[in-house]
Amino acid sequence: MVYKLKVNKKDYSVDATPDMPLLWVLRDLLGLTGTKFGCGMAQCGACTVHLEGEAVRSCVTLIARAAGKEVTTIEGLSPDSKHPLQVAWLEEDTPQCGYCQSGQIMAAAVLLRENADPTDEDIDHAMSGNICRCGTYPRIRKAIHLAAKLQKQGGTK
């Protein structure tokens, strides 16, 4: 079946079965490999992308749900990789192996959109479903605080 999708502001038509996970579509059909496969069962957050602005787990979100809607992946979070989170992530040298990090950033982006000045507790509530096997959690927390500051200054977007 042919589905129309809007990914990172670009229109695509893909031929897929209705039960194909969005993650498969993004990685295998569209070649957008920034989004990772971790568990395939909504447990780890590695596959987090935005569907109509919400941080859905693309491994369990079927293409039938995403069809006709707006999808944003790490590749489309900002036009120039200058989203405050991306800047802060580099500044704090956040990733170790990097595997979980696109999911972490996509989750954090929803937090910062809804709460411009998150406390440590807010960060816990937003990020506790995104697992990092390298244990970069302290740096993720620092980077989110920094990104909140950058966002307020409005110097990056």
């Binding site: 909504a42 941080a55 369990v60 996509m106 989750a107 937003a126 990020m127 506790s128 479903g129």
Partner: peptide, 27 residues
């Protein structure tokens, strides 16, 4: 697990909203 909380409207919070994982049908 995953530290999920209710949120004021009962739909979860931030990146941890219910329907981010719970689909319209059982997975």
């Amino acid at each position: 697990t995953q530290g999920v909380i209710r949120g004021s409207d009962g739909h979860g919070v931030y990146a941890m909203k219910c329907t981010n994982c719970h689909q319209p049908k059982n997975t």
